[in-house]
Structures are given as C-alpha cells and as structure tokens.
Write a protein that binds this DNA or RNA. Structure first.
Lengths: 191, 191
DNA sequence: GCTAACTCGTATATTCCCGTACGAGCTAAA
DNA sequence: TTTAGCTCGTACGGGAATATACGAGTTAGC
C-alpha cells in the first residue's frame, strides 16, 4: 500500500523542497520555525501543513531523509582496510552530514518520543561504532576509553566544527583537514 | 556607590538562591524558563522579578557569577610547569564549570548583545588560550591546527562530557579521567 | 475540458512565556 | 514598635508559535 489516492507531481515537488528546507534550517538551528521553513522552501505555510500535519512529523521526515543520505554515503565509502584510513574517507565524505544530523536529532528529541528517535538513529550510529571497535581490535584505536564516549566525542567535534564554520571562525576549506586531524588524535592510542 | 538604599539580609539570600538556581538550570538548558528558575530557587516568580527586571539581566547575573567562580579557580590553579600537567590540573578542578559556562553563554547570546557577552567572557577565554600557546611554544602541544579551533574543541568536548553524564551514558566518577585523556590526545603533536 | 488535487491567504483558537499591575501580608532593622 | 523593605499570589496584556477552519483560485492528469 504505497498511496491510496495517487499524489500529483507538483505535490511531490513541494514535499521535496519542504524536506530539503527543513533539513537545511533544522540542521543549523533545532528551534527553526515552521514559518521559516515554509518560506525557505518557497511555499506557503498552509501548503506545508497540507503535507505534514504537525511539526513532529515534519521533523521526523527531515531526520529520516538525512539519515537515509547518511546510509547511502556509508554504503558508498570503502570501510575496509586500515580503520584509520577508512575513518578518514568516511569523515571526508560525510562530516557535514553527521553535523547536520546532530542538530536534527536535537530537534527530534524535543518533538518525538525518545524511543522513536533511537529507533531511527540506531542503525547509522552503530556503523561508526563498529568501525571504531574494529580499529580497537586491530590495535590502531585507543582502548583506554569507552567506545560509547569515543563515538559521542567524534560527534561533538563534528558538530563543533560546523558551528565554528557558521560563526566564521573556521574556513570551510580547512574543515576536512582540521576535523580528520582532530579525530585521528582523539582516537589514537595514547603514548 | 554600592547601594543607595540598603538591602535587607533576606533579600541578599533570595538573590543568592535565584542566581544559583539560574546557573544550575541555564547551565543545563539555555532555554530554561523564568518560572522554572524561580521554582528551583524556592521563590515566587514575583520575588524573582523584584530583583531582576527581565530575563536578560538574570542571565547576565548568572553568567557573571559563573565566570567569577571560573576566575577564582583559574587563579587558584598552578598554571606553571609543564603545560600538559597544568592543563590536567585545570581540567580536574574546573571542567564542569567550563561546561556550565558554555550553556550559560548560549543562553546569554540569545538575550544580550554579542558585544556585551564577549566583554564578559573575554578574560577567562584568553587564559586557556594563553596556556595552549605556551604549550605550543614549548613543543608539547600541536601546532598543525589553529589555536582558536583547539580552544573551541576543548570546550565542545567538555560540554559533550557534561551532556553524556546527564544522559546517564557516562559515570560521573569517570569523567575527569575521560576528559583529561581526551583533551591530552587532542592537543598532543601528531605522530 | 473536467475534475480532483493542490496552493495559499485570512482568520481564529490555543498554548506558552514574558513582563506589568495591584495589593495583601510578613519581616528585618532602626 | 514602627516603617520600610521584602515576599508572593492573582490577574492581566502582549508576543510568538503551533495548529485548525474556511474558502477562493490554480493546475496536473485523465
């Protein structure tokens, strides 16, 4: 059961633009308004409500969309070989996506039940954790700190980098280098 | 000109409790309500308004109080000797204070002019930066990343650690060890 | 070209929070 | 004990945001 009554092409387009705008704004500011999102999508507020009955469902749609993109990237990146190099590749292609998702998650936690959020976010989070574990087994990542903390710390660094960029304190071109260098140091076994 | 009309002792007590509650709540959630703060202080909302005419001044008072505590700690900590050890001492005695201040700053940025915030927060922020620079000069801290980013990254990690603790994903007793180990790795020159 | 689907404005109800007004009762301090 | 200062409840007004109701105009798709 896909759609009971067929959806028109212009509706599809509107929905796509709304979700894109929601990701863009909520990815920067979890408190972004429905009005702002509708305006950014180039769409009337009532049109938005026509497709998403309330804020919760809009946020969920944006989060799902971002996580799906994340899954795509994770599948496309070669995660085999030296875990350090794999992580570098991963960060290069998806650091901004992860940063965006962090803010979306914050927005989601205010509108959706925590269980639902975990359910959505579980799979992608696990993938990074698996990579870290493999690196620990291979002896190239530290084992003196809990894996859960390492995963979280990487997220906080990425989110921070995005924030620094928005504040103009970090040049967009420098971010990949800064991020990979920071994360590498954080995960390396201490001397 | 201290106080034109002398303030009564019970008023002083109320103010102290309000500021403490404001630090506590705003340090966790920058969006904490005036009602919540008054309730946490064990005081009626109107009493709070009797001392702080609006939210902005309350937030400022809380921030100033936290920063003053921060200054006290910074003065008490021995920042000489090996910068790595100095940083360890600093983090051990003030990581939670820094994390609290981060959230307070976020709250302040939404209510106070940016210039005022910088003015208040400038001095303490500079102290950490100075310590990092000294470590760079001594060759014990990395120089391949901008100092501004390193300072910010440390803040993001501390804020993240506080959040993990609140979420129950990190035990309070483990935090000093986790934080110092993470920051040390982040700042160490790469191999 | 007909029709159902879509767009979107205006108006309205609701909720939440901030801030003000008024006033009654209590308490510290001279 | 007097009085000025403090506490704090209730009530009110305003602004912002969410969400609903109604309806007029437009467009995609058969």
């Amino acid at each position: 059961m896909t759609t009971r009554t067929r959806r028109r092409a212009d509706a599809e387009r509107s929905i796509a633009r709304i979700v894109a705008a929601a990701r863009e704004l909520l990815g920067r500011d979890p408190a972004a308004t429905i009005d702002e999102i509708a305006a950014a999508a180039g769409v009337g507020r009532m049109t938005l409500y026509g497709h998403f009955p309330n804020r919760a469902q809009l946020v969920e749609a944006a989060l799902v969309d971002a996580l799906r993109d994340g899954e795509d990237v994770l599948s496309a990146v070669d995660l085999t070989g030296d875990p350090r190099d794999a992580l570098d590749r991963l960060l290069a292609s998806s650091w901004s996506l992860v940063a965006e998702s962090s803010s979306l998650l914050a927005a989601a936690l205010e509108v959706l039940p925590a269980g639902r959020v975990r359910e959505l976010h579980g799979a992608p989070a696990t993938r990074l954790e698996d990579l870290l574990r493999r690196g620990q087994d291979d002896g190239v990542f530290r084992t003196d700190l809990p894996v859960g903390w390492l995963v979280s710390a990487v997220h906080y660094l990425l989110k921070g980098a995005a924030e620094e960029e928005r504040a103009g304190r970090l040049d967009a071109a420098d971010i990949p280098r800064v991020v990979t260098a920071s994360v590498r140091s954080l995960l390396a076994p201490p001397a």
